[in-house]
Design a protein around this nucleic acid. Sequence first.
DNA 1: TACGAAAATGATAATCGTTTTCATATTAGG
DNA 2: CCTAATATGAAAACGATTATCATTTTCGTA
Lengths: 148, 148
Amino acid sequence: MPYNTKQQQAVLACLAAKREGCITALELVEDLRRQGFSVGLTTVYRQLERLEQAGHIHKINMEDGACYQYCAHPSGDCFLFKCERCGRILHPDCAQLAALYAHLEQAHHFSINPRKTMLYGLCDLCAEAEPDTAEPGNNKTVEMKDLP
Amino acid sequence: MPYNTKQQQAVLACLAAKREGCITALELVEDLRRQGFSVGLTTVYRQLERLEQAGHIHKINMEDGACYQYCAHPSGDCFLFKCERCGRILHPDCAQLAALYAHLEQAHHFSINPRKTMLYGLCDLCAEAEPDTAEPGNNKTVEMKDLP
DNA sequence: TACGAAAATGATAATCGTTTTCATATTAGG
DNA sequence: CCTAATATGAAAACGATTATCATTTTCGTA
């Protein structure tokens, strides 16, 4: 049975205070130390893993390390969307998204894990500001004819 | 303008031969060397980045490094599903999935990037074999009452 | 309140995937 | 065939994460 420690509570509190904000392990220690807490990076990593397993936070694997976000849905019934432009992570409230997951389960027998699934794209705000550049596949550097 | 090199073609060919298979950068060098190619890890990384930008492969960020998979849909209209149990990455053919992306775009103004979006869960085969253990949130190690 | 076993902490070192550096080799156009 | 542009790859650097381990904290119990 785990013990209750100050560091444990501090990490959870910091994540919870960030609400919809996404934060790195390193950023978290710095933040906590700025608040006066004495906490080590190792401990923060340990707590983050625990909190993820307990379902209180999401761990998002990025290209350069992971970041973490508080999740107000410990039951696990939430959807995640990350904007590639501004970096925000949103919890879209969409009935059709829920319906799709049910469909994939029933018709295709794919059991979706919402905790791990992240939709990527442009959020409403960024999509508007986007000067629709960068059509996918335009910056070709490999010739298709070279394919086997 | 990029040059056509043997290593470039070898990397692409190896990925393409794997078809639905997912492979690590390191695995790829080893594979190529086993085939008799003389190729360096650095070059493989460079080619993988190029191929990804050109849309010929997917880069999948895992907890312990990335793995790469050939994509037969250079246009970008494909869906990705990764089984957390067996590790397979599937390209589900589902009209409702396409419809959902359109819905998110029109109703929520979320522009989904299919190349980056990966659904996680259990595939049809693994879902069947799964002895439905590990309900999410059961392995609690943090008390909810400690939340701020 | 003090004791002691179980558990947590945190500085340091180790790990490992990925990127940078830079000297050399290859490519393709003239 | 020459030359500039580009690609290669071994080695070093980098950085996020994990392992190690001596020390400290927690909490049930005497």
